[in-house]
Every structure is written in C-alpha cells, then in structure tokens.
Design a binder for these strands. Sequence first.
DNA 1: ATAATATGGTGAT
DNA 2: TCACCCTATTATC
Length: 260
Amino acid sequence: MPEGHTLHRAALDQRPMLVGQHLDVSSPQGRFMEGAERLDGRICTGIEAYGKHLLYCFDAEALHIHLGLFGVFKFQKCPAAEPKGAVRVRLMSKSHCVDINGPNCCEVLDMPARAALIGRIGPDVLRSDADPERAWVRISKSKAPIGLLLMDQSVISGIGNIYRSEILWRQKVSPVTPGNAISREIFDRLWADSVHLLKIGVKANSIITVDGVKKARSRYGERVNIFNKPHCPACASQIRRLEMAGRRAFICDTCQPDVR
DNA sequence: ATAATATGGTGAT
DNA sequence: TCACCCTATTATC
C-alpha cells in the first residue's frame, strides 16, 4: 500500500475531515502519549504529503507520520467505534475519526525539524511545486544504477519498489544503467511516467501501471506488468529477479537490455 | 486454521 | 547486516 500515492490520497481524503477543526488527539495503544497530549485540543491547520511522509500541521508544529511497510490509515464517521488493533494515534474531529496503526514514524516536529525533513527529501513526483532539475542533477552525476536512484527518497521521492520496476519496464530502461548514462531525454520520460502513474495511483487508491486498467481487482493481478510476474506481457520472456537495495527488482532482459 | 511475505525506513551493531 | 514496527494479503496445511 504505502508508496507515495497512498500518502497524497490520505491527505486528500482527510483534509475535509480534519482541517480547520479542533482535534481530540489520543494514543489508544499508549505509545504516543506525550505527543498526543501536546497536540490534543489544537486546531489542525493543514495536511501535507511529501513523498512518503505525511504532516498534520498544528500551527508551528506538525505531527509527522511515515507508514513504513505495515502502517495504515483508517477513517470513519463519528461516533467512532472502539480502536482496532494497535492504534498509535487517533485524531478525532467533530465529524470524523482517523486512526493510524503501525506507523514506522510518529513524532511531533517543530519548524526547524519540519524544514530539515522537507529539505532531505528529493522532489516529489506528485507535488506541483516539485523541481525535477534537482533529481536530474543527482542522477546525471551518479555512477549508481538507476534502479537504486529511483528508490532513493533523497534523489526523487514517492516511488517505491513496485513503481520502480514498473516505470523502468515501461520506459525500457535496465535498472542497472548507471545514472550518468541516462540521457536527458530518458530522464524526462522516467519523470513524466512517474507523475502519470502515481497520479493514477492517487485516483484509484491503488497501484495501477497497466494502460487501460481502471480498477484494482486483486493485489497484483492485472494491475501491474512485471512486478512479481513470471513472464513479460510484451514479449513473453522470463522475468528475472534481482536484489537491489535489499529489495526485489524485476526485469525483462529482452525489453530492457543492458546497454552499458 | 496457521505461516509466510512485503508496497519502507531508521537506528543499532 | 539486522531488528524493529506489528497490517494485510497470500500461500500452505
């Protein structure tokens, strides 16, 4: 679930539920008591997503959430049901209740810390204020493989392990291509396709990288081209798996030749 | 029914 | 390199 699209979708969903209202903030699970107490009763002034990070703003402070691999948002209308599972934070407005379970990161940031966080994140393909030049500078100067660079959130943010394999396959780029061997034209295509796919992901609330597919049916199913698939949908070659940054990457050696 | 696996990132070792 | 966070889905009995 949580690649960049998940967080932007959460921001869109939750803004009308929470922003502009005094929130009851609690930690049913008990592992965020201090932070909850600090924010309880204050007005939520905005919700912003940066890459895979979400910030609930309360004037000069912000609740910083990173879902990690397991984290999930759940929301419901009031009156709210009993917390289910390990609810680290419960945010309650007059109308809605948002529960956050299992986040990797859950902390209160002051302004300098918020600036530091935003500063260390590369341009987010889903933000209109993103500057792709920053990503181009990093990639074009790096000897690291593009499959690693696309997953490096300080280079470009929002892309996760599924989108990585899918974008590189769609643009016929081998993940082992060094960043400094990527032409400006290829970079522009990678960026544009990332924006395109993650926007679809926000709308569908699911990763869909196959053209023409509108709705998510199963976990992978027809939604993706090569991620976790045995054969290439374009040429039927066997899909090769390789370990990159400790994560499984998928590659079709026919469609994505190593041109180094 | 129970077990295994992962769309992520941090901090310790 | 590994433990952790502790959900949701899929695979295996």
